[in-house]
C-alpha cells in the first residue's frame, strides 16, 4: 500500500512558488557568473539599467572612457537593443594589476532585451556625465474599457 500523503492545494502552491524562486535565483546566477569582458572581441560589458514607465522604456548605460561621438545604439529586431561605444583609449589588463590575462579593450558593448513592445524607430538618446540614456516610446495595445 502506498504511504504517499495527498497534498493540499496550499502545499502545491507553496512548492510552485519555491520552484519559481529557485529558477529566478538560478537565472540571476547565470547572468552574473560570466566575465564582463571578452578579449576575442576586445570588448568590455558596461553596467546598465532598464526602467519601464507608463509611456516609455528608459535604458541607461554607464560608459566610462566612451568617446561621445562614437556611441552607437542599434535595434536588433523588435525587442533587443545593442549599444556600443569606442573608448577614448585602449585599456589593458595590466592597468588593473592583472598579469594572469593578456589583451586590451577598445570598445564597451552590450545588448539589452526590452520587456514590453516599443517603437524602435523612435529612439532618442543623450549622453551626460558618462551615462547614456535611451528613451523608447511604448506601443500600447488596445485598452480594456472599465465599466
Amino acid at each position: 500500500m502506498s504511504s504517499k500523503k495527498r497534498r493540499s492545494i496550499f502545499e502545491i502552491i507553496d512548492e510552485y512558488f519555491e520552484n519559481l524562486s529557485e529558477w529566478a535565483e538560478r537565472f540571476r546566477e547565470e547572468l552574473i557568473e560570466k566575465p564582463t569582458w571578452n578579449n576575442r572581441t576586445c570588448t568590455i560589458e558596461p553596467l546598465r539599467n532598464i526602467m519601464v514607465t507608463p509611456t516609455e522604456v528608459i535604458i541607461t548605460v554607464d560608459l566610462p572612457y566612451a568617446e561621445e561621438n562614437e556611441i552607437r545604439v542599434e535595434p536588433i529586431g523588435s525587442d533587443l537593443i545593442e549599444i556600443s561605444a569606442k573608448m577614448k583609449r585602449k585599456i589593458r589588463f595590466d592597468e588593473f594589476g592583472m598579469t594572469q590575462y593578456e589583451g586590451e579593450f577598445k570598445t564597451l558593448q552590450c545588448q539589452t532585451r526590452i520587456p514590453v513592445p516599443v517603437y524602435t524607430d523612435k529612439i532618442e538618446a543623450n549622453f551626460k556625465k558618462g551615462i547614456l540614456e535611451i528613451h523608447l516610446p511604448r506601443k500600447h495595445r488596445e485598452e480594456i474599457p472599465i465599466e
Binding site: 540571476r28 564582463t36 568590455i44 553596467l47 554607464d62 566610462p64 585599456i91
Partner: peptide, 18 residues
C-alpha cells in the same frame, strides 16, 4: 580618476547589486 574607478568597479558593483 573618476572614469578609471567606474571602469574598475563594474564587477564589484554588479555583485553588490545582486
Amino acid at each position: 580618476k573618476g572614469e578609471e574607478i567606474r571602469l574598475k568597479a563594474r564587477d564589484v558593483m554588479r555583485r553588490t547589486q545582486h
